[in-house]
């Protein structure tokens, strides 16, 4: 049975990926309600590499940033910046899945397509 878990960004904010990786190892697909920063993505890749084994070959991940979706005006960008400062996260979403389940994620600026 396919398991998908939606988790708030706040759970990853302090760089604690152990619960997330435990879920991924058990075959759960994770959706985070924000776009990870590049340094968070790099940290997650590093942590993933540490637990790769014969049974767990790694992850597929991809993010969508909502502010990237349209040619926003300066006013829109300023408004988005204020919203991000208040929320403390980048508006968007991140999908992370075990590589054994998600074979590929195709991204174009507006969509994510998962191949399973």
């Amino acid at each position: 049975m396919l398991r998908i878990k939606l988790i708030p960004y706040e759970k990853l904010k302090r760089g604690n990926y152990s619960d997330l990786l435990k879920d991924l190892k058990e075959g759960t697909i994770i959706i985070v309600d924000a776009k990870l920063t590049p340094s968070e993505e790099a940290d997650l890749i590093e942590e993933t590499m540490k637990i790769i084994s014969d049974r767990f070959s790694g992850i597929e991940l991809s993010s969508l940033e909502l502010t990237e979706l349209k040619d926003t005006t300066r006013m829109d960008r300023f408004r988005n910046l204020i919203i991000e400062m208040i929320l403390g996260k980048r508006r968007g979403l991140t999908i992370i899945g075990p590589a054994k389940i998600i074979r590929k994620i195709e991204k174009n600026p507006e969509e994510l397509l998962l191949y399973m």
């Binding site: 920063t37 993505e41 790099a42 991204k107």
Partner: peptide, 17 residues
């Protein structure tokens, strides 16, 4: 290959940062 891959995006993002 399709350049819009997560690895490319992560590398460029980290260099920018």
């Amino acid at each position: 290959k399709n350049p819009i891959s997560q690895v490319n995006i992560t590398i460029l993002g980290n260099l920018d940062a």
